[in-house]
Protein backbone atom coordinates (compact mmCIF):
# COMPACT_ATOMS: atom_id res chain seq x y z
CA UNK A 1 0.00 0.00 0.00
CA UNK A 2 1.28 3.42 -0.98
CA UNK A 3 0.66 6.24 1.49
CA UNK A 4 0.82 9.79 0.16
CA UNK A 5 0.93 12.76 2.51
CA UNK A 6 3.26 14.41 4.99
CA UNK A 7 1.29 15.05 8.16
CA UNK A 8 1.00 13.23 11.47
CA UNK A 9 -1.81 11.00 10.25
CA UNK A 10 0.10 9.89 7.18
CA UNK A 11 3.05 9.07 9.42
CA UNK A 12 0.82 7.11 11.78
CA UNK A 13 -0.57 5.05 8.91
CA UNK A 14 2.95 4.30 7.68
CA UNK A 15 3.93 3.13 11.14
CA UNK A 16 0.81 0.97 11.31
CA UNK A 17 2.03 -0.83 8.15
CA UNK A 18 -1.49 -1.78 7.11
CA UNK A 19 -1.72 -4.96 5.06
CA UNK A 20 -4.52 -4.83 2.47
CA UNK A 21 -6.01 -7.18 -0.04
CA UNK A 22 -6.01 -4.95 -3.15
CA UNK A 23 -3.31 -2.71 -4.60
CA UNK A 24 -4.10 0.57 -2.89
CA UNK A 25 -3.00 4.16 -2.66
CA UNK A 26 -4.04 6.18 0.38
CA UNK A 27 -3.86 9.95 -0.05
CA UNK A 28 -3.90 11.73 3.29
CA UNK A 29 -4.86 15.39 2.94
CA UNK A 30 -2.02 17.72 3.86
CA UNK A 31 -4.15 20.23 5.72
CA UNK A 32 -2.66 23.08 7.66
CA UNK A 33 -3.48 23.00 11.35
CA UNK A 34 -2.97 26.60 12.37
CA UNK A 35 -6.14 28.59 12.94
CA UNK A 36 -5.92 31.98 11.25
CA UNK A 37 -8.71 34.52 10.73
CA UNK A 38 -9.63 34.64 7.05
CA UNK A 39 -9.08 38.36 6.87
CA UNK A 40 -5.42 38.05 7.87
CA UNK A 41 -4.45 35.20 5.53
CA UNK A 42 -1.62 36.23 3.23
CA UNK A 43 -1.10 34.92 -0.26
CA UNK A 44 1.77 32.87 1.16
CA UNK A 45 -0.53 31.37 3.81
CA UNK A 46 -3.11 30.50 1.20
CA UNK A 47 -0.57 29.03 -1.16
CA UNK A 48 0.65 26.74 1.62
CA UNK A 49 -2.86 25.82 2.75
CA UNK A 50 -4.69 25.51 -0.58
CA UNK A 51 -2.58 25.60 -3.72
CA UNK A 52 0.31 23.34 -2.80
CA UNK A 53 -1.70 20.63 -0.99
CA UNK A 54 -4.16 20.49 -3.90
CA UNK A 55 -1.39 20.18 -6.45
CA UNK A 56 0.13 17.38 -4.41
CA UNK A 57 -3.22 15.63 -4.09
CA UNK A 58 -3.96 15.84 -7.81
CA UNK A 59 -0.53 14.43 -8.61
CA UNK A 60 -0.98 11.68 -6.02
CA UNK A 61 -4.32 10.70 -7.57
CA UNK A 62 -2.67 10.57 -10.99
CA UNK A 63 0.20 8.42 -9.68
CA UNK A 64 -2.29 5.95 -8.21
CA UNK A 65 -4.05 5.69 -11.56
CA UNK A 66 -0.79 5.27 -13.44
CA UNK A 67 0.21 2.52 -11.02
CA UNK A 68 -2.97 0.65 -11.93
CA UNK A 69 -4.09 0.40 -8.34
CA UNK A 70 -7.53 -1.06 -7.73
CA UNK A 71 -8.24 1.19 -4.76
CA UNK A 72 -7.68 4.88 -4.12
CA UNK A 73 -8.64 6.14 -0.68
CA UNK A 74 -8.47 9.80 0.31
CA UNK A 75 -8.42 10.64 4.01
CA UNK A 76 -9.62 14.08 5.06
CA UNK A 77 -10.77 15.87 8.22
CA UNK A 78 -14.49 16.51 8.62
CA UNK A 79 -13.91 20.27 8.69
CA UNK A 80 -14.53 20.45 4.94
CA UNK A 81 -18.09 19.28 5.47
CA UNK A 82 -18.80 21.21 8.64
CA UNK A 83 -16.82 24.35 7.98
CA UNK A 84 -14.51 25.67 10.67
CA UNK A 85 -14.01 29.24 11.86
CA UNK A 86 -10.48 30.51 11.27
CA UNK A 87 -9.72 27.34 9.32
CA UNK A 88 -11.43 28.19 6.02
CA UNK A 89 -8.13 27.69 4.21
CA UNK A 90 -7.83 24.13 5.56
CA UNK A 91 -11.52 23.35 5.12
CA UNK A 92 -11.28 24.33 1.46
CA UNK A 93 -8.58 21.75 0.81
CA UNK A 94 -10.31 19.00 2.78
CA UNK A 95 -13.60 19.44 0.94
CA UNK A 96 -11.94 19.82 -2.45
CA UNK A 97 -10.16 16.50 -2.04
CA UNK A 98 -13.35 14.83 -0.79
CA UNK A 99 -15.27 15.93 -3.89
CA UNK A 100 -12.35 15.21 -6.24
CA UNK A 101 -12.80 11.63 -5.05
CA UNK A 102 -16.26 11.64 -6.64
CA UNK A 103 -14.95 13.00 -9.93
CA UNK A 104 -12.20 10.38 -9.96
CA UNK A 105 -14.69 7.64 -9.08
CA UNK A 106 -16.86 8.66 -12.03
CA UNK A 107 -13.96 8.63 -14.49
CA UNK A 108 -11.89 5.72 -13.23
CA UNK A 109 -14.61 3.19 -12.46
CA UNK A 110 -14.33 1.98 -16.05
CA UNK A 111 -10.62 1.38 -15.42
CA UNK A 112 -11.35 -0.98 -12.55
CA UNK A 113 -10.46 1.47 -9.81
CA UNK A 114 -12.69 2.42 -6.92
CA UNK A 115 -12.17 5.80 -5.28
CA UNK A 116 -13.51 6.56 -1.83
CA UNK A 117 -13.02 8.97 1.03
CA UNK A 118 -12.63 8.46 4.75
CA UNK A 119 -13.47 11.53 6.82
CA UNK A 120 -12.04 11.66 10.31
CA UNK A 121 -12.13 13.82 13.39
CA UNK A 122 -9.92 16.91 12.98
CA UNK A 123 -7.70 16.06 15.94
CA UNK A 124 -6.27 13.08 14.07
CA UNK A 125 -4.70 15.59 11.69
CA UNK A 126 -3.32 17.68 14.52
CA UNK A 127 -6.11 20.24 14.38
CA UNK A 128 -7.24 21.51 17.79
CA UNK A 129 -10.91 20.47 18.17
CA UNK A 130 -11.51 23.52 20.34
CA UNK A 131 -10.61 25.67 17.34
CA UNK A 132 -13.15 23.84 15.20
CA UNK A 133 -15.86 24.22 17.84
CA UNK A 134 -19.13 22.33 18.09
CA UNK A 135 -20.55 21.37 14.70
CA UNK A 136 -23.69 19.68 15.99
CA UNK A 137 -26.20 20.47 18.69
CA UNK A 138 -26.01 16.81 19.70
CA UNK A 139 -23.13 15.35 21.66
CA UNK A 140 -20.97 12.69 19.97
CA UNK A 141 -22.93 9.45 19.63
CA UNK A 142 -20.00 7.34 20.78
CA UNK A 143 -17.76 7.83 23.77
CA UNK A 144 -14.01 8.05 23.36
CA UNK A 145 -11.83 9.21 20.52
CA UNK A 146 -11.22 7.77 17.08
CA UNK A 147 -7.81 6.10 16.97
CA UNK A 148 -5.62 5.20 14.04
CA UNK A 149 -4.95 1.61 15.06
CA UNK A 150 -8.41 0.65 16.31
CA UNK A 151 -10.60 2.65 13.95
CA UNK A 152 -8.82 4.03 10.89
CA UNK A 153 -6.74 0.97 9.99
CA UNK A 154 -9.72 -1.43 9.93
CA UNK A 155 -11.66 1.03 7.80
CA UNK A 156 -8.81 1.32 5.30
CA UNK A 157 -8.51 -2.47 5.25
CA UNK A 158 -12.23 -2.84 4.52
CA UNK A 159 -12.29 -0.29 1.69
CA UNK A 160 -9.13 -1.86 0.25
CA UNK A 161 -10.63 -5.34 0.28
CA UNK A 162 -12.24 -7.28 -2.55
CA UNK A 163 -15.52 -7.11 -0.65
CA UNK A 164 -15.68 -3.36 -1.34
CA UNK A 165 -15.57 -3.83 -5.12
CA UNK A 166 -18.89 -2.02 -5.68
CA UNK A 167 -18.25 0.84 -3.27
CA UNK A 168 -17.04 3.99 -4.99
CA UNK A 169 -17.47 7.74 -4.69
CA UNK A 170 -18.48 7.29 -1.06
CA UNK A 171 -17.50 9.19 2.05
CA UNK A 172 -17.23 7.08 5.19
CA UNK A 173 -17.20 9.30 8.25
CA UNK A 174 -15.50 7.87 11.32
CA UNK A 175 -15.59 10.53 14.01
CA UNK A 176 -17.52 8.83 16.76
CA UNK A 177 -20.85 10.08 15.50
CA UNK A 178 -20.37 13.84 15.50
CA UNK A 179 -21.05 14.81 11.89
CA UNK A 180 -24.11 12.98 10.51
CA UNK A 181 -25.31 14.67 7.35
CA UNK A 182 -25.45 11.90 4.76
Amino acid sequence: MVIEGTGVLADALRIAAVEVECATTVVVADVVTTATPFETLTDEDFDAAWEQPMRHAISAFQRAHRAGHARLIAVVPTIGMSGAPNLAHAAATAEAIRVMVKSAARQWGADGMTVNCIALAPELFGIDPAAVGDVSLAPPALAGRTTVVDDVVPLVRMVASADAHHLTGATLTADGGVWMTA
Binding site: F38, G80, M81, A91, M100
Partner: peptide, 21 residues
Amino acid sequence: PLYSPVKAAERAIAKSLAREW
Protein backbone atom coordinates in the same frame (compact mmCIF):
# COMPACT_ATOMS: atom_id res chain seq x y z
CA PRO B 1 -13.16 16.51 -12.80
CA LEU B 2 -11.01 19.37 -11.49
CA TYR B 3 -13.92 21.81 -11.67
CA SER B 4 -15.62 19.99 -8.82
CA PRO B 5 -12.93 20.42 -6.15
CA VAL B 6 -12.76 24.14 -6.90
CA LYS B 7 -16.50 24.51 -6.42
CA ALA B 8 -16.41 22.28 -3.35
CA ALA B 9 -13.70 24.43 -1.81
CA GLU B 10 -15.85 27.52 -2.28
CA ARG B 11 -18.68 25.86 -0.34
CA ALA B 12 -16.34 24.87 2.47
CA ILE B 13 -15.04 28.42 2.72
CA ALA B 14 -18.59 29.75 2.78
CA LYS B 15 -19.51 27.45 5.67
CA SER B 16 -16.36 28.39 7.54
CA LEU B 17 -16.87 32.10 7.03
CA ALA B 18 -20.52 31.81 8.01
CA ARG B 19 -19.32 30.54 11.37
CA GLU B 20 -16.40 32.98 11.57
CA TRP B 21 -18.24 36.12 10.50
